Computed example of a mutant assay.
Amino acid sequence: MSRSRGAALLLVLWLIVLLSALVGAFALTARIENQQGRVLARGTVGDAAARAGLEYALMRLALPDPALRWQPDGRPYAWQFHDMAVEIRIVDETGKVDLNAAGSDLLAALLHAVGAEPDVAAQVAGAIVDWRDEDDLVQPVGGAERAEYAAQGRAYGAKNAPFETVAEVQQVLGMTPALFEAVAPHLTIYGRLPSPDPQFADAVVLQAMGVDADPILAARAATGALLAEAVLGGGSGTYSIDSRARLEGGRSARLRAVVRTGAGAVPGTAYSVLRWEEGASPR
């Protein structure tokens, strides 16, 4: 009898331990799922806030009053969407260097401005021009056609056709991931100008153009300059918009898009999307 009671007691104790472990595991799983749900819900709200920032930016760009109209020159605009802070930057695509229109000198100057050595900048700039032109002649400075690609073990040669995306420039001979990351924010295929519009260009592009950036950037930073606002106007109608909603814990929901408004938009819509990228970022 004593042994049976001892065995029964031991079995009951093991059952209690097992049930406690199961309850603990269930409680931990429920807590993790609750936290994941909260993060997901907050992220969804953040994505909606970033999208709202883009829509609001387009509305402010179209305002007729120059005192209220936002300018597409890269300056940051702060906006509150319910309880979430949103920072918005707008850049007119004519303020960037167009891969299909810029000359090799401007391209080389831009690459040098973002950190490339002068000889590397000249070589890559020539290769960019050779990539988009229709002939098989190598540029006088730098450049690369089929033979140069083959010598580097590339199975393809120069495309001999216009760039279709900014990302395509990564295939150009001499373009490294680090150089592309540095130069990509200053490039476009939608500007269609041989030289960017200095009204909308950032400091790096202005430097590449040989323009003194300080007075231009100082004028943009000044507030209440209605005359400058009136002169600038709303831009070309094709814009890069970076909308970032701040989340808890220092993270943010970010939307980066290139959109076209006005006559260039799809009929029946306020704007057409040329590029769209969204997601959370660590800061």
Score class of each variant (00 low, 15 high):
residue 105 D to E: 15
residue 105 D to T: 14
residue 78 A to P: 03
residue 90 I to L: 12
residue 97 V to Q: 07
residue 121 A to H: 13
residue 91 V to I: 06
residue 88 I to W: 04
residue 83 D to F: 00
residue 114 V to E: 05
residue 122 A to Q: 14
residue 75 R to C: 01
residue 81 F to D: 15
residue 86 V to Q: 13
residue 121 A to K: 02
residue 114 V to Q: 02
residue 117 E to G: 09
residue 88 I to G: 07
residue 122 A to M: 05
residue 118 P to R: 11
residue 101 A to I: 01
residue 90 I to E: 00
residue 102 A to D: 01
residue 93 E to V: 12
residue 103 G to W: 02
residue 105 D to C: 09
residue 85 A to F: 14
residue 79 W to T: 01
residue 115 G to L: 08
residue 77 Y to R: 04
residue 110 L to C: 08
residue 88 I to D: 02
residue 96 K to V: 02
residue 103 G to Q: 11
residue 77 Y to W: 01
residue 119 D to W: 14
residue 88 I to F: 07
residue 86 V to W: 05
residue 101 A to G: 03
residue 110 L to N: 00
residue 86 V to Y: 11
residue 105 D to I: 10
residue 110 L to M: 00
residue 88 I to H: 05
residue 81 F to L: 15
residue 88 I to Q: 06
residue 86 V to A: 07
residue 110 L to D: 02
residue 106 L to A: 01
residue 90 I to N: 01
residue 120 V to Y: 14
residue 78 A to D: 03
residue 82 H to G: 10
residue 106 L to P: 00
residue 116 A to I: 11
residue 75 R to S: 13
residue 113 A to H: 11
residue 94 T to D: 09
residue 106 L to Q: 10
residue 91 V to H: 06
residue 104 S to Y: 06
residue 115 G to N: 10
residue 115 G to V: 07
residue 111 L to Y: 06
residue 118 P to W: 14
residue 113 A to Q: 02
residue 112 H to C: 12
residue 108 A to S: 11
residue 92 D to P: 05
residue 79 W to Q: 06
residue 83 D to E: 06
residue 100 N to E: 05
residue 107 L to G: 03
residue 121 A to C: 11
residue 113 A to M: 07
residue 109 A to M: 03
residue 88 I to R: 03
residue 116 A to V: 06
residue 114 V to M: 02
residue 88 I to E: 05
residue 77 Y to S: 01
residue 78 A to W: 13
residue 102 A to K: 08
residue 111 L to E: 04
residue 78 A to N: 11
residue 91 V to D: 00
residue 81 F to R: 15
residue 115 G to Q: 03
residue 87 E to G: 10
residue 105 D to K: 15
residue 110 L to Y: 02
residue 118 P to T: 04
residue 80 Q to E: 12
residue 83 D to C: 00
residue 86 V to E: 03
residue 95 G to P: 09
residue 97 V to S: 09
residue 113 A to R: 07
residue 91 V to Q: 00
residue 101 A to T: 11
residue 85 A to M: 08
residue 79 W to C: 04
residue 84 M to E: 12
residue 84 M to F: 13
residue 97 V to Y: 07
residue 89 R to T: 00
residue 98 D to N: 14
residue 116 A to F: 05
residue 103 G to E: 14
residue 122 A to I: 12
residue 81 F to K: 04
residue 84 M to N: 02
residue 97 V to D: 09
residue 90 I to V: 09
residue 75 R to L: 10
residue 107 L to H: 03
residue 105 D to W: 02
residue 90 I to M: 09
residue 92 D to V: 09
residue 116 A to E: 06
residue 76 P to D: 01
residue 91 V to Y: 00
residue 79 W to Y: 12
residue 107 L to W: 08
residue 120 V to M: 14
residue 98 D to W: 12
residue 96 K to R: 11
residue 100 N to Q: 03
residue 96 K to C: 05
residue 96 K to W: 03
residue 119 D to C: 09
residue 118 P to K: 12
residue 78 A to T: 08
residue 101 A to Q: 10
residue 81 F to P: 06
residue 104 S to Q: 08
residue 78 A to R: 11
residue 120 V to I: 14
residue 115 G to T: 13
residue 109 A to I: 07
residue 82 H to Y: 11
residue 81 F to Y: 15
residue 107 L to K: 01
residue 95 G to K: 07
residue 115 G to H: 05
residue 103 G to R: 01
residue 114 V to T: 00
residue 84 M to P: 05
residue 97 V to N: 06
residue 107 L to N: 03
residue 75 R to H: 10
residue 87 E to A: 15
